[in-house]
Design a protein around this nucleic acid. Structure first.
Lengths: 212, 212, 212, 212
DNA sequence: CATGAATGAGCATTCATTCAT
DNA sequence: TATGAATGAATGCTCATTCAT
């Protein structure tokens, strides 16, 4: 479940690959913390341990770094949903999706905040991608769920709102991390808390969907 | 349910009050759209129909506008939760809270995004407020819920995670508005869609909490 | 024959007018010496005795200063040609044009170099203006000359090449000032030299055009 | 009439020579189009099909390329004037000079613009060369002309102004190429237009100098 | 010879804030 | 109160040049 999988096989030296990686890693850190406008190339180049012009030798502009980052992460961000198997046991498939989602939230909170930042501000930079990819995927998966409901295998609810609530409840732990910590004293990076959270969400969606 | 509650009773002329109000209204618009760093005083003063120096006559700095805005809105933002009545019918009380929350999300999406922006970025400007007010309120209400659970009036779940999931699922429709619109073609400002959403969430939390 | 005549009557304070003037004067100096790319806002703001941001408070960008400058000067730059009177004595009219041209070259050498710089580099910023205004004017005047030739009042030559050679021979003293000084030890800012130059050019075009 | 004449006979491999040539050719293109400050090493190295560091292996700096270019071209640039033969027929000699000048303007317009750019901006990089070579040559040739005038073989005019006007009228077609094209729709690279221009200039200087 | 990688200095422009009136 | 004028401190980005191989 790599979040930065391999890309277009271009002729690149080892240093190039390494530096691009360093930059994207640094940029993820900075952008997810401060948003696009709130982040400066200085911060990123500092975090990447490299001079500003050198950073711009690898990426044309701040914008370009941001776009590359979003594009590369989007794929993996959608992975958990792709695995939803129409042939599997309906409730178990959905619960597994919830579990993978909460695991990703734990393991990649910066990625979650990166997208949250972007979308809250109207997704000015990735609307096109959202429009195409996400919509298509979500439509497909919603249809699978509808079929399951038609077959009486899970309770009938609006599948799109169901997906929204899975996204919202899981990503909340990454996006609103500060608030969660203020209330709980810890967050899902703590194993105990992770288990409690997972249990709560499993229960939430089981209650909603399980046919008695 | 005013979102800009009563101010400290200071000696202020009518014009002063009116201008402060104009500024805060403009700032809400701009900040909720672009975040703190992404917003400029120029944008705000333009939106407020007022010169930059005049705006800074009313508020010492950009920071000050932002803080004032957050402080004034926080109060009303927490109102729905305050109304949770320990004497009322447990399930109905919680569902009413969910209803008030989704109504607020519909009526004040900019306020929701303002807070979301702030919290995602680590709440650098309002952590202290969150630490005090919210925590206290949430602790109180969580205890009420626990009592209800102890009395067997609703199913037992972690009350704080319950509150998180209510926040997350409702605010999602404001904070991720773009995405919701991309998927549904509309959002809860459309009456039909509002009803569907409300029904889905009522069902979600009823399923979770109702004792059969 | 002001080169910076009065412009669009806008609501501007005295300071505004004065500063715009100071900036344009400074910019003329700098741009005519170094070309557009070779000039920096720092140089201009320094020459105008004002801070860089303040300069940009009056003109949006370096580009904008340059364009304003060219636009305002173009008008007066074409004045001498406009005065060519179809009713006047043909040879005398043309000689008067030559005289006015060489006077302008003496009095406004920076303006001449500003245009020369721009046109040598392909006129990237004022091609449209050239295409319209100059062409129209030149066409008109060429027709007048042709009529004079048809009437046998001056010798027949290609009127457009005639105009080119008037432009070239007069402006040369501004545009190639360094070279002229290297050869003559002085240039037309010296009254003696001015008279000699004028006499040479009068002779040149009289020889070409006069019917014996 | 090579414009890049013979070089100081140094020990250089064939590749070296070829690369220097490629660089100078590319630099001529770029410098004549954008001026010194407006040209970047990137542009030149790109045009030369060679990496930036490699280019700087052949020439120490951007400055060095420019200087080399000017020095090498100057020689050939002056060639037409050198051929002015004191023993020839005066008028014919001068007309031949005009013809060679206009031919050079047609064949080497970039070279003309390179010098024009440099001189308009005060010749900061080649003043010394101008001071020496050109002056000497021009002085010599002016004396020849004066002698012809003393002998009554051509009309008496100021020989230096005469040379200026030959330079100005011929080079105009290269330096102000854009303007010429805007007015005529074509320039002297078109054979017809070349003939017309040559005829006009021959007539201009014949009228001026011919003893009836 | 040749090039990928790296950088200090510079440059146009933005922005929060202050000054003067 | 209100605003035109002014600026120091960024900020994104460019460019000549150098380093290492």
């Amino acid at each position: 479940m790599s979040l930065t999988g391999s890309e277009k096989p271009q002729r690149k030296t080892r240093i190039q690959r390494a530096n691009e990686q360093k930059i994207l890693e640094a940029a993820l850190d900075v952008f997810s913390r401060n948003g696009f406008r709130g982040s400066t190339i200085d911060q990123i180049s500092e975090a990447a341990g490299m001079s500003k012009p050198n950073l711009l030798y690898y990426f044309k502009s701040k914008q370009a770094i941001h776009e590359t980052l979003l594009a590369r992460l989007l794929e993996s961000w959608l992975d958990p949903m792709k695995e939803l198997d129409p042939e599997g046991d309906p409730l178990e498939e959905i619960l597994n999706y919830v579990r993978r989602k909460i695991e990703m939230t734990r393991d990649f909170p910066r990625e979650s905040r990166l997208f949250a930042n972007e979308i809250i501000q109207g997704a000015p930079r990735i609307k096109p991608i959202l429009e195409g990819e996400i919509n298509a995927l979500l439509e497909t998966k919603a249809k699978i769920m509808t079929k399951w409901m038609d077959e009486g295998k899970i309770k009938r609810v609006d599948p799109k709102h169901l997906i929204f609530s899975i996204w919202a409840t899981t990503q909340h732990y990454a996006d609103f991390d500060v608030q969660v910590r203020l209330v709980l004293g810890e967050n899902i990076d703590n194993p105990d808390q992770f288990e409690k959270t997972k249990a709560y969400l499993e229960n939430l969606f089981t209650s909603l969907l399980k046919i008695d």
